[in-house]
Design a protein around this nucleic acid. Structure first.
Lengths: 108, 108
DNA sequence: GTCTATATATTCGATATCCTCGAATAAATG
DNA sequence: CATTTATTCGAGGATATCGAATATATAGAC
């Protein structure tokens, strides 16, 4: 099994963490788009969420129907311990590599 | 053409920046492994470097033979302006998503 | 000088994983 | 049963990965 997080897996895991108990397909996609400007289809988001689930990096629970106006039940995602670890490693790697290379270059 | 940087592309670009004029296959691989612990074959490194080259994110120059003890000439890599921009965007996205989610979680 | 062994470095070909989308499906309410 | 909300599916492209093959340089034997 792959030990590394893909690019989008990283962003999706971060979104799941940010959203806490309100993380599901729609909100995850919105969070990423709002914070990064990155656009993607729902299919993309869900395939990533499901992959993270299969890897055991998130856990899911099925939501109750809301009283809003129909619509299928939500599938909520929560980050798992393994997900936290994988994310921490991944971010640490980037930080270690970026350390010392400074602001200037991120502008030009 | 894809607008996003893969996970490894990000690390390789950072290594190329760090190494300045001494960036080539062998040193890039070593830099990443030393700083992150991440192992990979040379084939992996070179395929990524070449992909970045095709995308115009790095530029190459061929080194002169050294007086060390045989061996093929080195192909040096330098980050291009487009590479800096892509990297800056990519890192900014991660930072924007990680912002506010703090220390505690990176431990547990 | 020129062969050949050896060291250094890069390329190649094949496969797995990740990303991506649009269309299809499912499940809830009025 | 029409509409809304949400998720799954199927197919194709991009990235990552490796081991083996290839290229190119020097040193030493002859």
């Amino acid at each position: 099994m792959p030990v590394h997080l893909g690019e989008l897996e990283q962003l999706v895991l971060l979104a799941v963490m940010r959203l806490g108990r309100d993380a599901y397909g729609v909100t995850v996609r919105r969070e990423i788009t709002e914070r990064t400007g990155r656009r993607m289809s729902f299919g993309t988001v869900y395939s990533t969420l499901n992959r993270l689930d299969e890897k055991g990096l998130v856990v899911t629970r099925l939501g109750e129907p809301t009283a809003e106006r129909g619509g299928r039940r939500k599938k909520y995602f929560l980050i798992a311990a393994a997900g936290r670890h994988a994310l921490a490693r991944s971010l640490r790697n980037v930080r270690n590599m970026a350390e010392g290379i400074d602001p200037s270059w991120s502008v030009s």
